[in-house]
Amino acid sequence: MSEQVWAYSGSGEVQCELMSAALELAEKSGRSAVAVELGRQREEVVAQSRLVVKGAGDDPLPEVAAEALTRAARSRHPSTILVGATRNGREVASRVAARLGWPCLSEASKLSIDGAQLQANRTVFAGKVVATVSCGLPAVVTIKPAFYPKSTASGKEVDEFDAGELTGVVKLLSRRKKEAGAVDLRKAKAIVSAGRGVKRKEDLPMLQSLAEELGGALGCSRPLSSDLGWLPEECHIGLTGVTVKPDLYVAVGISGQLQHIAGMKDSKVVVAVNTDKDAPIFQASDYGIVADLYQVVPAIKKALESRR
């Protein structure tokens, strides 16, 4: 068995995160970390060592990517293949595991190797429970994006593998960027939610940019969309709006009426900013700041920026 830990993602950004995971794992177990690239080397990928698999073309569909990886693995025998758990990545990992007959760990965060056993943490039950799972090597693992930092270790080592001709049964007819503006709050990892504590529509960009700084989206309480029309309907969270479960929910100037709480009560961490110390939102929050949002929000933004 070769001593390599492979990392593959169709997204360059995620690929860099995977390299961190691969390096960590490789170091712990005396193996080496290799970034697998399909078709060509991507500039945005930073890695010490690469394997470029020829034959798949650029940006292949997951079916083809999986076959390319499978052929490469059959010939080079890596011990582990890490794949970013993006939508396409999940398909690639599943197919590679099925074709190679390897076990597959999914949505892993903390990876470690214990002898011939691979071990990982992952959350289950909507983030309520952390499970520790393991399997024998060789194995395929999908890694939760945004858990590992991007690796900066660079190098020039490049190897090539020709996978031969690769075709799939699924045909790509068109590919386009997603429509802008259509935010899906249900999928956002962080949400800044604006309530009637916000005085004017013109103040919303302040909250929007906080949301962006946190890598999330802007939502609101019902009055802001339904009564005031400051934000589109699909932004309103609660009983009559969308139900969300982000990792971070920041309620700004929201009193926390039950109809609103009903839509965000399963968020992982809730932060509230409100001038009223008795506002019910504080009962439903992990962290509360009793102060004027017009002072606190810019302060949070500054603190976030200085953290970078």
Partner: peptide, 8 residues
Amino acid sequence: LEDSVEEV
């Protein structure tokens, strides 16, 4: 997909 829409 995360940031694109494909027709296949």
